[in-house]
Design a binder for these strands. Sequence first.
RNA 1: GCGGCGGUCGUCUAGCCUGGACUAGGACGCCGGCCUGCCAAGCCGGAGAUCCCGGGUUCAAAUCCCGGCCGCCGCACCA
Length: 584
Amino acid sequence: MHEDRHEAVMELAKRRGFFWQSYEIYGGVAGFYDLGPLGVRLKDKIISLWREFFIKKHSNIVVEIETPIIAPSKVFEASGHLEHFTDPIVECMKCGRKFRADHLIEEKLGIKAEGLSVEEMTNIIREHDLRCPVCGGPLSEVKLFNLLFKTTIGPYSSNIGYLRPETAQGMFVAFKRVYEVSRKRLPLGIAQIGRVARNEISPRQGMLRLREFTIAEIEFFFDPEEPFSNDLISELMDRLPRRKIRVLTVDAKKNGEEKPFEVDVEEAIRDKIILTPWLGYWMLVAQEFMHALGIGYSDMYFDEKAPEERAHYSAQTFDQLVHVSRYGWIEVSGHSYRTDYDLSRHMKYSGQDLRVFKQYREPIIVKKKQLIWDKAWIGRTFKSRAKTIFEELARLNVEEAIKELEEKGYIEVAGARIPRDKITVVEREEKITGKRFIPHVAEPSFGVERILYVVLDHAYTVKDGRVVLRLPRRIAPIDVAVFPLVKDAQIVKLAKKLWIELMNNGFYTLYDEEDSIGRRYARIDEIGVPAAITVDYQSLEDSTVTLRDRDTWDQVRIHIDKVVEAVRDFINGASLNDIGQRYG
RNA sequence: GCGGCGGUCGUCUAGCCUGGACUAGGACGCCGGCCUGCCAAGCCGGAGAUCCCGGGUUCAAAUCCCGGCCGCCGCACCA
């Protein structure tokens, strides 16, 4: 057998065609994996289940979009990724250690190095003969390292584009339009499932750290003044079987705690353990989602990231960790409170107003004092300076101006004195029907390939020396196999008929007549086919076939006219007994 | 990127230290045929490996040396 389950899973994945390293015939490239026939199906079913949990069941508040993988550099300037992913690095030529060049210069020489160019930093290092702080060896030139993949858009080399490192920016950039087509409602979740690329320095750990992978995430926009969106969250929570999650908070870690503890999400929100309600709600959904994929509640928890561990946009982040055989606890999803960071940045960089308008139930009437100045007089008196004076007047704080007027008898702006009699103070009623604000964002974000690996790791079991992949029935790459017990012409004919019928009814099927029946069962157990239909001699007499359960190896007889219904019920979770009673 | 270990049929591996009888062996899997009345049975036949890539040493390299690529582990990095 294999040394550990990880090895067994990787071997199985390669041998049966779930996934393998890309570009094998050229020696392979680290951080890239191909998905094989079974892998594609499994991934597709995982994504379908994600859609069901996060989109379908929330179709009143979540919509899905698709945006490009390549974005112009402006987008990542705005998002902060260009700035935050470009680290100036120097390498010790003797011991090979790498250091942040700007940090090293500031630390050792006390010179502010932030924002300096690569050449400037290299010069400073050369001038001061800065050496490796560990071994004293000479340092290389300063190089920039950015995890964004760079490309050009069109034939002009100056038109730089980047491959997105997260799908999120697509939702932020398109927010205004999606909000519009969603009839301007908050809360609004914008979901996207798509490929992203991160130029990792040294990816390892198989499927767990890829340079190109699939993210499924939601940017969930809400009104920060109504973080509970009235009672919507509690209504949604009522549908969930569990209110509790296991968490390990930063505070608990500071107190030396290493084990997660259980909290009621609503209480955690009230106690400010979770900073904003929607973040907590989506964590609960994430927990149910992973549970549906076959992960036990005790095999997962949420780990709060310390400020220095968080992304630049995040006010709070919880990683959803799942336990796997070799690597221990690994992250399958991240839950970040992104506040209004992204929309604010895109407002600034694009010049577009990305705020939403909130109408008050009742308009608010405010009495407001206003200054009216004699434009004709100012124009005549100050001529060319008048324009500046008008601008300055418009900018004045009304209350302060009135005070100045009363105390001095004039207002001085832009070096010009405007006397009392040229200014009128009026009081007006203003009707305020609502206000504009930037929505806040809670983001649940999943790494699909990681989930795929985690699911395989948890499904892998050995029964009587045989591998049985106990995938949840709904996500198995192949739903049902059809076997003739022996290669008898009549039995084969009937089996093939049933096989075609199942295929025509929307199932992923497999037909096999080679080798002994036991070996065929073993072959499908290994790839997790949940149901097997076997046609035998009795089938020819009484028109029944057997339905075999992958996990128990038990069988029931069902009528051949009911095979499609029986398999459908079985895939949807019915027990073998019920199937036997219903369709026997 | 550094250090350690490794890379041989589809998969897992033997051989490598001690170079030559290796036409690279085995198991499982795969393909064809036979057999088979329900859980990896058996029989017959077959295909499948430029021994990761490149260079060097040698009369001779899977085997020794150098470089590269890839993998695993540790360090560093990890929005």
